[in-house]
């Protein structure tokens, strides 16, 4: 079984966010990059399944320049078998999804997995777009994934509950919290092996981006926290009602 795992390269959560070029670009200076945590959880679940059923080959794919290689090598260190980097700046979700769909078409994969969103733009878009480009089923926001032969059973979170979905392969699913508990951390052996695993760089196919960043803005600063006496929660309720107007 061959699985394509789409990973994204994102700034670490603790990063200080700054913008350059008249606030139209993210300032990459001194930023530590990581694999987006939901992609890591998706990879972790795949590795668990691989250990159960055996015979699974996991290819990690990402879209980006050579600067994202350390991120994709980390996916290899955690346990992906090989990697593909589509050599292009990821302009928008439509562009990225199209590239991943092309890699899928060229590789006889059985299904695509990714995280529900990247933690920088949190668009929740790429997985579903890949499915539509490939004209195959999709299950977003997967909180559980089990495979039984050619059928996947996926629990999808919905507003106010959950759905149990069965789908034949091929399909696309995007993992969220619950798909795996803790992301796996690469061990020394994994890091050593990752250096020898293939990382194939392929050119991008043409796909127009339809969205672009105009500019970034910072939220208004919120001012100091107003402290209320612990013996007087009624004062808090009064302030929430009269001052903040949220009750």
């Amino acid at each position: 079984m061959k699985v394509l795992l789409a990973v994204s390269h994102v700034p670490d959560t603790t990063s200080k966010i700054r913008f350059v070029n008249k606030d139209s670009e993210f300032d990459k200076t001194d930023i530590q990059y990581i694999i987006s945590p939901f992609d890591e959880l998706a990879l972790t679940r795949l590795l668990q399944i691989k250990e159960q059923i055996g015979g699974m080959h996991i290819t990690a794919v990402t879209v980006g320049g050579a600067d994202v290689d350390p991120t994709i090598r980390k996916a290899l260190a955690i346990g992906a078998d090989d990697a593909v980097r589509v050599d292009a700046e990821p302009t928008d979700a439509l562009f990225v999804a199209r590239q991943i769909a092309e890699v899928f078409k060229n590789g006889e994969f059985d299904f695509v997995m990714t995280g529900k969103e990247s933690i920088d733009f949190t668009g929740n878009q790429v997985g579903e777009m890949v499915a539509e480009f490939l004209n195959i089923p999709s299950v977003a926001s997967a909180a559980s994934l089990e495979l039984n032969g050619n059928i996947a059973t996926i629990i999808r979170e919905i507003d106010g509950g959950k759905e149990v979905i069965e789908t034949p392969m091929p399909f696309v699913t995007s993992g969220q919290k619950g798909i795996a508990k803790e992301p796996r951390i690469p061990n020394m052996r994994g890091i050593m092996m990752a250096r020898k695993k293939p990382l194939n760089v392929v050119p991008a196919v043409e796909q127009a981006a339809h969205t672009k960043v105009v500019k970034f803005t910072m939220p208004e600063s919120r001012g100091a926290c107003k402290m209320i006496d612990a013996d007087n929660p009624a004062e808090l309720i009064r302030l929430l009602h009269e001052e903040a107007k949220v009750l």
């Binding site: 439509l94 926001s141 919905i158 339809h210």
Partner: peptide
């Protein structure tokens, strides 16, 4: 921008060759 919209908007964007912004 709930669980349903997150599934449908991106798929529809591909279908209609449209730009989409979520949330």
């Amino acid at each position: 921008h709930n669980f349903t919209g997150r599934s449908l908007a991106p798929r529809l964007a591909v279908r209609l060759d449209a730009g989409t912004v979520s949330g």
